[in-house]
Design a protein around this nucleic acid. Sequence first.
DNA 1: CGTTAAATGGCAGTAACTCTCAAAAGATTG
DNA 2: CAATCTTTTGAGAGTTACTGCCATTTAACG
Lengths: 207, 207
Amino acid sequence: MAPANTSSAATSEPRLGLRERKKIQTRQAIRRAAYLLFERQGYDGTPIDQIAEAADVSPSTVFRYFPTKEDIVLTDEYDPVMEAAIRARPADESPVEAIRQGVHVAMRHIMENDIVELRQRTRLVREVPSLRGRQAEGMGQSARMLCTVLAERSGRDANDVELRVVTSAILGAMHEALMYWVEQGQQEDLIALIDRTLDVLDRGLTL
Amino acid sequence: MAPANTSSAATSEPRLGLRERKKIQTRQAIRRAAYLLFERQGYDGTPIDQIAEAADVSPSTVFRYFPTKEDIVLTDEYDPVMEAAIRARPADESPVEAIRQGVHVAMRHIMENDIVELRQRTRLVREVPSLRGRQAEGMGQSARMLCTVLAERSGRDANDVELRVVTSAILGAMHEALMYWVEQGQQEDLIALIDRTLDVLDRGLTL
DNA sequence: CGTTAAATGGCAGTAACTCTCAAAAGATTG
DNA sequence: CAATCTTTTGAGAGTTACTGCCATTTAACG
């Protein structure tokens, strides 16, 4: 199998050493193999050893790249994107509105690059309890990030209860919207759905 | 051991058989032993075998009572209490308000019975990632329950997106409040804190 | 008391990790 | 280019949560 360098992201970046390139490649190989096997025989039905074999690396290496099996599925690097997007918004905007814009940007980013993976991943998260649990962890991280950013904008402490409550509520709501989306067969316009979700929050959770 | 309970002794509750009583007893023994060991040597530092030994049962039995180690920590039976409380509220009350009242009732219930355990448990949940993840699962259950109840009141479908968003946001927010509470040393009045949290939601997540 | 059903304990097996160490491969310097 | 240094990899042994299976004990019931 030839490398085939599918990344296609205008490789104008600083030339990475061979080591770095191989690392990225291996990482991708493992994830690809895993997703394929998960699709075919389910998450729980796929032992790490088998993933390792399919990706042509040793089990040790799999664990080196992904500390837990869940991490193979749950790896998004969109937090920084969203963070940047929010920072770019005017400081007098309401938290909900700022986050709305941040999510819009991150969403467009995802849709362009790997919407297929988003579907697959969300489906897995929905079905496998341990993944759902792990993702909640990730949301905790995102929440802390949002708190920090919003704290700067509003001049509050990043540990302010109300601030933390706001971010947690928003993330909880959006997660639920995502789940709804996959349950419905991912037909709806995701951005519109998220907007509706944020509207509900905006108007004080009235029905 | 002689039966001794047969007729004369007014055994308070609907007379449980010896079997049932022993089961409850065993369950409690395991949990007590576990909490004690967790306190002393941490959650991850305490293998099931040790818990079994301390509770004077076999490891098999531990797994029979608690399908996972996490379940030893996370077992609350307050959902039904809250459900009943919400059902008792007038149907024209807003979701947030109804849940507020439901939480009040459940909280009082907890405070009277096992506030010590609440502290210990919440502390554990805060510290141990796997527990946090598992608890998120539990919140999912609670969310579905709330959806069902609120659906009846509002005449909506229990699967309505907005309904689901509302419950998820509320639960996410309350969870965060609880975390804040333990972080601050559990000094504040928990009920007041939760009220503040719900107020934030009520006014549309403005700061 | 004898029979039945449930709870228990022990044991073997699986799978997700963790640790350690030696070999292989990329980077670096003379 | 060779020698050395550093990073990545693979292999093996060990831990622990969990699953199934079967024999034994123990409560329930006629």
